[in-house]
Write a protein that binds this DNA or RNA. Structure first.
Lengths: 229, 229
DNA sequence: GCACCCGTGACAGGTTCTGTCAGCAGCCCG
DNA sequence: CGGGCTGCTGACAGAACCTGTCACGGGTGC
């Protein structure tokens, strides 16, 4: 591994991480010794990269550095294309359109030869055809994004219909099932709702009383889920 | 003058020029020999820089080495993030890393700091835990990308083991199953192989006799599949 | 044909890089 | 406070890399 390309890879490895990374971990990722990582960090800092290293914590790349991100690698393009193709098969037309236009923007920003690779990626995520009819997921996504309450009429597994106001936190795309994790005002607790069992859905203008971020943290704790990597 | 910083200065010297620059001129500017400039150009090209060198003219940097500013709508970001999260659960560590770093590049190439938006997307694609052990999908992806033959040992449903040379065309990510669509030299026809039934796998340097694009077309016809939208 | 220029190979000498070992200091948590 | 983890630095030897020089092939533009 060339030193120069390693420096670029180091930037890539640091970029976008929200939690500090230890030199040992980076060393393993790049298959070099820890000492070399320290030297490379020094080199990057000399080049002007705003890298923060704290003892006992790790390295963190502050935003606003001068090293611009290089273009996407072939593998990154494959990951983006495969992900977009899967999204397109998930029964949310608006999201499918968004996936397409995002790819188009990425293509525009890429040189011609990579642009061809985008369309010719041989990876496919076959669409699942068993999705039952369900309300507009775009509304649910908007509610999550804007941290707004949703008024729904819901038919549970026993066939009982209830009217609830929920604070949607997450939307999970299981195979064939869309599950909404939300705080339910009726129950005063977190509940899960299958999108296909929602018979009426109204996006309100009423914001959550707390932030989605905090709510997701609570939700994760309630589910005994680990923090996302 | 350090080699690494010289490469950066070379990029700076090339960027923004509309007319080709000769290696001699760059050599003088950087106070190195012409030969070194040629080698540095090779190094930059290896890093992925779209540098055009024409005999009798000079060097020119095409657009696309550095990611230009990208602007995505919230819905496009959601589509990209959801797709990437799904990719991360598909049991291909290299592709998962690529998905992460692609998102990171998108974040840093966006005008505002979209790191928070990216991380806080409330859409999730839970990972499927039932995937059996399987060989390194990265090798298979590389073979598809580079249009190279694969030598495999395969155990079919009846438990019979065969050694085959295949021309991998597509890799499909079904729920829990990775299926390779390929031309099989042993059978002289298109066959499907489950990745988890491959017991040995070797990436060869032998290219397909035809292009992957043409092969995929044939494969689609053989499967009576419509053209991809 | 001629002047330029990119591209490549070989080679020797010097520089840099890398891993190992050792030690110091700061941060976090119990 | 102590222990564990982690950043940071110095030294050193061997390996790897880089660089300039020379030579040659082949393409471009005039």
């Amino acid at each position: 591994m060339n030193r120069t390309s390693r420096l670029f890879r180091l930037m890539d490895a640091l970029r976008g991480r929200r939690r500090p990374v230890s030199a040992a971990r980076l060393a393993e990722e790049l298959a070099v010794s820890v000492r070399t990582v320290y030297r490379d960090m020094q080199a990057l800092a000399d080049l002007g990269a705003p890298i923060e290293g704290e003892a006992g914590v790790g390295y963190l790349l502050r935003a606003g550095f001068f090293l611009p991100p290089l273009m996407f690698s072939e593998e990154e393009l494959e990951a983006l294309v495969l992900g977009a193709r899967w999204v397109k098969g998930q029964g949310d037309p608006a999201l499918a359109r968004a996936a397409d236009s995002a790819l188009a923007k990425i293509a525009t920003a890429s040189p011609q030869d990579l642009r061809d690779k985008l369309a010719e990626t041989g990876l496919w995520a076959p669409r699942f055809n068993g999705t039952p009819p369900m309300p507009d997921l775009a509304l649910i996504r908007a509610a999550i994004r804007r941290e707004r309450k949703l008024a729904i009429s819901y038919v549970d597994a026993a066939g009982e219909q209830t009217h609830r106001t929920i604070w949607p936190v997450v939307l999970a795309f299981f195979e064939g099932v869309r599950l909404i994790g939300a705080w339910c005002e009726l129950r005063g607790d977190f509940r899960h709702f299958r999108a296909d069992r929602i018979v009426r859905l109204e996006l309100t203008d009423i914001p959550y009383p707390s932030s989605r971020r905090a709510l997701e943290k609570d939700w994760r704790r309630a589910q005994r889920l680990p923090d996302p990597a």
